[in-house]
């Protein structure tokens, strides 16, 4: 089983509802965020092209943060989700530095925090909070090892990209383009 998120950049309007939902669901300290929206505008006015991406931890298969963690606090959990054990984390910052997506931040309580794909919700059969609330339904979540899953179907039918695959991280956020 391998969890993945598929995000349709054509449908996303950049409302940041995913960000707020995550902050609420995961009690993220005020001002911090585990996910964020990137707006990329290319071209010269009036010939412009824009892409909106809801980004978060890529739950990499070859995660630099897990590799560099000196205590084993950062680890792979069921479904390939990369998690932090707060009580093993010394807050050295190696994982923050090692992440090419800048997806981690130091929680004010001392340990390093990041997106968990809402593993507590998945265990109960729910979708991650960001996916659940998306008003344009541009986000999909599921098991890409299962060819019948919605995410697998979308990745078969649509063109997609991942972020800096050349960093060798094998990311599992897929952006439909």
């Amino acid at each position: 089983m391998r969890y993945a998120m598929v995000i349709d950049t054509d449908k996303c309007v950049g409302c940041s509802d995913c960000v707020v939902a995550c902050q609420t669901e995961n009690k993220v300290p005020v001002g911090y965020a585990r996910d964020w929206v990137v707006e990329v505008t290319k071209g010269t006015y009036p010939h412009l092209q824009m892409e909106l991406r809801s980004e978060r931890c890529n739950q990499c298969e070859n995660a630099p943060c897990v590799r560099c963690c000196p205590t084993g606090s950062s680890h792979y959990s069921a479904g390939g989700i990369v998690l932090v054990k707060p009580r093993r984390c010394i807050g050295c910052g190696a994982c923050i530095t090692s992440c090419p997506y800048d997806a981690r931040f130091p929680h004010p309580k001392g340990y390093v925090d990041k997106c968990t794909f809402c593993d507590h919700r998945i265990k109960e059969g729910n979708k991650p909070a960001c996916v659940e609330v998306c008003p344009t339904r541009c986000m999909y979540f599921g098991n890409i090892d299962d060819p019948a899953s919605e995410v697998s179907r979308l990745l078969r039918q649509r063109r997609y990209k991942t972020l800096i695959p050349e960093a060798g991280t094998k990311p599992h956020l897929y952006f439909l383009t």
Binding site: Y32, T41, K42, G43, T44, F105
Partner: peptide
Amino acid sequence: MREELIISGRMNPMI
């Protein structure tokens, strides 16, 4: 073509 690249959005001054 001259290309402008504007990236905005990830405005998260705490992170």
